[in-house]
Amino acid sequence: MSLPSALYIVPTPIGNLGDITQRAIEVLSAADLIAAEDTRHSRKLLDAFNIKGQLWSLHEHNERARSGAIIERVQAGQIVALISDAGTPLISDPGYPLLRACREAGVDVIPLPGPCAAITALSAAGLPTDRFSFEGFLPAKSGALNSRISDLAKESRTMVFYESPRRVVATLSAMTEHFGADREATLAKEITKRFEAIVQSDLAGLIEWLEAEPERQQGEFVLVVAGYQAPDTEQLPTDAEKWLVRLMEELPLKKAAAVIADMYDLKKKQVYDLGLKLQGR
């Protein structure tokens, strides 16, 4: 079956070649032109499936300049496929200026479903998925990083982030400061690849896991963080609050909260949130 002329958004595997779809292979095989983030990387993928299409590089530095030529190819009746290095194009990858230009020019855009690291990690995180926020990569500089995380401290939706091996511990440390060390989170490392690991813990626990063995900090990461939950309005026993104040003078808040919660059969988060409130007085 012949395909209509259009720009096709084609997801590619994020690690395991077996995750490519039959439809993706059909579109890439039929394409007159394949726009790729890194042609050398993409040629290896195409060779694995014996796809011989013409490759053009399309990245953040040349995307606006090349959009016009790509649109002309589609308007001339050709099939153009857009791929990124891995996963679904435009999700923290190039493609937005091209897509906008196609829409403005009246060029058809046909998206294909397929691999996406953010959705794959979210599906296994064990956190609410009915509402979530994709935040992509956070700023690299410390000041901007902390400002952005501070802005998200009261975000109630589950949050999904991408992070690099060089910055993952620093990002988690900033999150413990602004979200609280006991905020529930999942770290997905090298999804679908040989050294895949999905670790469910709180933010402090994830830092401990990464620092226990330095090689754990290698690879690509997706971080899924629970959204903010307002403190339980149920009052704590008066004695519990008094003992919490005393223990906070001797112990870190997390440990003090755990002791009080165990003593009075309370939720640890409820006691921890009270401790944060007391610290802020």
Rank of each mutant, 00 (worst) to 15 (best):
Ala121Trp: 03
Leu122Val: 01
Ala125Phe: 00
Thr129Gly: 09
Thr129Cys: 08
Arg131Tyr: 07
Phe132Arg: 07
Ser133Gln: 07
Phe134Glu: 06
Leu138Asn: 04
Ala140Tyr: 10
Lys141Asn: 13
Ser142Glu: 15
Gly143Cys: 05
Ala144Asn: 14
Asn146Phe: 03
Arg148Phe: 02
Ser150Ile: 01
Ser150His: 13
Asp151Thr: 13
Lys154Tyr: 09
Arg157Glu: 11
Met159Glu: 07
Phe161His: 07
Glu163Pro: 00
Ser164Ile: 05
Pro165Asn: 03
Val168Thr: 05
Ala170Asn: 12
Leu172Val: 03
Met175Phe: 04
Thr176Arg: 14
Glu177Met: 01
Arg183Gly: 10
Ala185Tyr: 08
Leu187Gln: 07
Glu190Lys: 02
Ile191Cys: 04
Lys193Gln: 02
Arg194Trp: 04
Arg194Tyr: 01
Arg194Val: 15
Phe195Arg: 06
Glu196Asn: 04
Ala197His: 05
Ile198Arg: 13
Val199Leu: 05
Gln200Pro: 00
Ser201Val: 02
Asp202Gln: 08
Asp202Gly: 12
Ala204Gly: 15
Ala204Val: 00
Ala204Pro: 00
Gly205Gln: 10
Glu208Tyr: 00
Trp209Asp: 06
Leu210Met: 06
Glu211Asn: 13
Glu213Asn: 14
Pro214Ala: 11
Pro214Thr: 08
Glu215His: 15
Gln217Ile: 03
Gln218Tyr: 11
Gly219Leu: 11
Val224Ser: 08
Val224Pro: 06
Val225Arg: 08
Tyr228Cys: 11
Glu234Gly: 13
Glu234Ser: 14
Gln235Phe: 02
Gln235Pro: 02
Pro237Tyr: 06
Thr238Ile: 12
Thr238Asp: 15
Arg246Cys: 00
Met248Asn: 04
